[in-house]
């Protein structure tokens, strides 16, 4: 493939599709530099993370220590591995994640695809169960047994309404968990 301007081999190839019209540009190194054609490259998430952290300066250390209430993952752990700890991390780190996701996803900021039929139901349920089990843990630790029994009943009630197997299992597992010994 030759350069659009001269006869040298093209090293930069740009294809843009706008309103259904495709435009191709092929340029040699010199003409590409001259034209200032920058290649929009897709960067792996780890690279984005490093750049992001650097651009945040001193602010990053404080926010890096913040951990997800769902699984305890910190933002700096996410930076190291590139994977989040649990679905709740998206909420916990929303502020830091949003610009990252936007860059990794070619500027997209919101989901526009399919929505699961039971989404609303499951989201509410998870939040309630999470809150109740947290309170239950606290009550057991503080030896407030009456309160704990009440919370356990409420969890059991959620348990009895039809739900997916893993939510009820998760609730049961947490409700059964023995009190923590410090």
């Amino acid at each position: 493939m030759k350069c659009d301007i001269c006869n040298k081999p093209a090293v930069v190839h740009e294809v843009t599709v706008k309103n259904g019209v495709t435009k191709e540009i092929h340029l040699c190194k010199e003409h590409a530099e001259e034209a200032g054609v920058a290649m929009p490259t897709h960067q792996p998430i780890n690279q984005l993370l490093t750049q992001f952290v650097m651009s945040q300066g001193g602010q990053s250390s404080e926010s890096s220590r913040k951990s997800c209430p769902g699984c305890g993952t910190t933002f700096s752990q996410f930076r190291q591995t590139g994977t989040l700890g649990c679905p709740e991390c998206y909420d916990a780190f929303e502020e830091q994640l949003a610009p990252l996701i936007e860059r990794a996803q070619n500027g997209a900021t919101h989901h526009r695809g399919k929505v699961p039929k039971r989404a609303g139901d499951s989201l509410d349920r998870t939040v309630i169960i999470r809150q109740l089990t947290k309170e239950l843990d606290q009550a057991v630790t503080a030896e407030q047994y009456e309160r704990a029994a009440e919370l356990r009943d409420r969890l059991r009630h959620i348990d009895e309404t039809p739900a997916s197997p893993q939510i009820t299992k998760q609730a049961k597992r947490k409700a059964k968990r023995p009190p923590k010994k410090d």
Binding site: T83, L84, P87, Q105, H111, K114, D121, S164
Partner: peptide, 21 residues
């Protein structure tokens, strides 16, 4: 079963490069 989903991000995945659909 219920799949992890958020109205903003769509289907929630371990790596944010798969989030959405």
């Amino acid at each position: 079963t219920d799949f992890a989903f958020s109205s903003r991000w769509g289907y929630l995945t371990a790596c944010p490069t798969n989030v959405g659909t």
